[in-house]
Structures are given as structure tokens and as C-alpha cells.
């Protein structure tokens, strides 16, 4: 790609950000949507979160991991346990990442 093509690509992506985030916000009139879908959509955010997290934990290079001895699994488990105990985001991030790093660097998992 030439520099200008890349700039055009980036400009298009900025527009995509605005149009997707504003899809139902920008129109003046309400877009029609069936009631059951409106109700069901409240499960969409948790689905999106799980969809981002799960592959990050159990896949590497596009394949399912074959061993339980993976530092990421234990880091994630530590993070969940810590969050349930302390209910604090910041310390959860530190604990989960620290456990993962210790196992990866210390034990080579």
C-alpha cells in the first residue's frame, strides 16, 4: 500500500468506528426492532466480553492449547478468585498478571 492508500484506509476505519458506535444513536427516528430482540440484547455485552476473553486464555496461534499447564489459565483463575474476594479491579489486574508472569518466567509454563 502507498502512504496515501494507507491514510485513506485509516480514514475509512475512523468512519467505521463512528458509524458502528452510532448505528442506533445517530438516526433521528427510532429504528424498528422486535421486542424479544430488544430484551435479548442485554446479554450481548457479556457475550462480547466472553468472546474476547476465551480465545485469549485457551488458544495460542489459532489452536486450542493441549496442556493444562498454561500460565494464562492460572493467571485468570487467580484473577477471578481475587476479584470475588476483594471486589477491586485495579488489584485484580495486578494479581492476575503477576501470577501469569511468575509461572511463565519462573516455571516456563
Amino acid at each position: 500500500m502507498t502512504t496515501w492508500e494507507t491514510i485513506a484506509t485509516i480514514a475509512g476505519m475512523a468512519l467505521i468506528t463512528l458509524l458502528t458506535r452510532g448505528f442506533f444513536i445517530l438516526p433521528s427516528r427510532e429504528l424498528p426492532m422486535p421486542e424479544w430482540l430488544r430484551e435479548g440484547l442485554r446479554f450481548a455485552p457479556i457475550g462480547a466480553l466472553a468472546a474476547v476473553i476465551a480465545p485469549e486464555l485457551v488458544m495460542s496461534q489459532g489452536r486450542l492449547i493441549s496442556s493444562w499447564l498454561d500460565a494464562r489459565l492460572f493467571g485468570a483463575a487467580a484473577a477471578v478468585a481475587w476479584y470475588m474476594w476483594r471486589r477491586d479491579m485495579l488489584s485484580t489486574i495486578v494479581v492476575g498478571t503477576a501470577v501469569m508472569l511468575m509461572l511463565r518466567i519462573g516455571l516456563g509454563w
Binding site: A50, A54, T97
Partner: peptide, 28 residues
Amino acid sequence: FAGTVALIAMTCSMLSERATWLPALVAG
């Protein structure tokens, strides 16, 4: 991984508020 853990903490906070763990597991 720190970013992933932030998302995990966020998910936990949502799970404790409503019974949405099954949709979350299925989605994952």
C-alpha cells in the same frame, strides 16, 4: 494479558449482578 485480566474482572462484576453466567460460558 493485563488487558485480558481487566476484561475478566469486568465480566466477574457483571456476573455477580445478574445470573448471566450460562450465556457467558456458551459465548466463550
